[in-house]
Design a protein around this nucleic acid. Structure first.
Lengths: 201, 201
DNA sequence: GGTCGGGCATGACAGATGTCATCTCCGGCG
DNA sequence: CGCCGGAGATGACATCTGTCATGCCCGACC
């Protein structure tokens, strides 16, 4: 019997997925969580074999949750499930120790199969996403450029970005200008959109 | 037996929800669809009693699908389910004839209850969302301002917005300026963010 | 030890953007 | 009929942004 932790902030979805997994003879959902921190706590309390984590959750995202779970339970296999299949997310997820990565558009049977596969020590990433990730390449942004772009993402004026990043306004403009050039965008918001689409911020 | 059409572009979620609904003795999922147009077609072919529609789907959104279904099957009760509980969406949904509106964060049992309620001729909207919608008020934007803001949303420069909206650049700037003032934003992108958050574009 | 690249900054400049006053045209409405 | 509000437009002006050249400091690497 494979013991599963299921974390997703959408109750309806989480419960439906739990019931679906429970229909499998060899799977058992031993804990559920609706937030990132709750998922980490539930993992500590229940020592599941496999953790199925939504990527976007209040508090901590699925990747950070994975890192924290692995620190306590190195043998727990983490599978990320997400609505937004951005290439960059997949890369970050894999480098943080995730064993499986599925978009929510994947066929239903795949989830149970993936759980079994990662529990057996294997890995599974959605093939389409993997292809995208490979063709998309790495982020061309330096860490600082990514930071600044992230602050710019909500439409703040330069001055506020500078304040939040503890930089001078001139420097912020340089970084944004670099980012715009690298991402082949027409302005900073376009650049934000591109970076987001690729999962680079 | 209540006959249900279930439409959601995320396979994993749709199948899980279908299984959950099938567990109820009085509910039967007679058709599933992964896109807006497919949902409309499936409704025509299967004449369901209740349509459970995701708000964001490829092709047509849940609200448009509702309108099209009601044109053919005026007695079909439509329920919208969504990840993004924006107040404006609720308003638009209700005015297009939707009978139920639930965020995906709602307790799992609520979905089945809502299906029964709307099938019996009732309505059900998530109370929290209803409260938000009331307190949020109506969009202060004129239809044209909303149009322009929508074109501005992806970060295009003014010139391109003007082209897409068939307006002069000056006019676009006026509308944008008005929208920025009305939404109490610092620039057009901030305004877009706000309008989106409220579901006004 | 020298060189190179990244992080950080400044200043100058052009072009994009936001604001404002003002104007026309048109459809509703008293 | 006359008035008004909304759509659409223009022009002037002040800022904000994006670009570029240039410089400093520091850690990495040969």
């Amino acid at each position: 019997m494979i013991r599963i932790l299921l974390a997703d902030d959408e109750n309806l979805i989480r419960v439906a997925l739990a019931q679906m997994l429970e229909l499998e003879d060899d799977l058992e959902v031993v804990a559920q969580a609706a937030t990132g921190p709750a998922a980490v706590a539930a993992a500590k309390d229940n020592t599941p074999d496999v953790a199925v984590l939504d990527l976007q959750m209040p508090g901590l995202d699925g990747i950070t949750v994975t890192e924290q779970i692995l620190r306590v339970l190195p043998d727990c296999a983490c599978v990320i499930v997400t609505s937004h299949g951005r290439p960059g997310y997949l890369k970050r997820a894999l480098s943080s120790g995730v064993k499986g990565f599925l978009p929510k558009t994947t066929p239903a049977a795949t989830l149970a199969e993936t759980v079994r596969k990662v529990h057996a020590g294997g890995r599974h990433v959605d093939p389409e996403l993997a292809a995208e990730a490979i063709s998309a390449g790495d982020s061309p942004l330096t860490p600082r450029e990514a930071d600044v772009l992230e602050f710019a993402a909500d439409g703040s004026p330069i001055e506020e970005i500078a304040r939040r990043a503890s930089l001078s306004t001139g420097t912020v403009r340089n970084y944004l200008s670099n980012a715009i050039t690298k991402l082949d965008a027409t302005n900073r918001h376009d650049a934000c959109a591109t970076a987001r689409r690729m999962g680079w911020i």
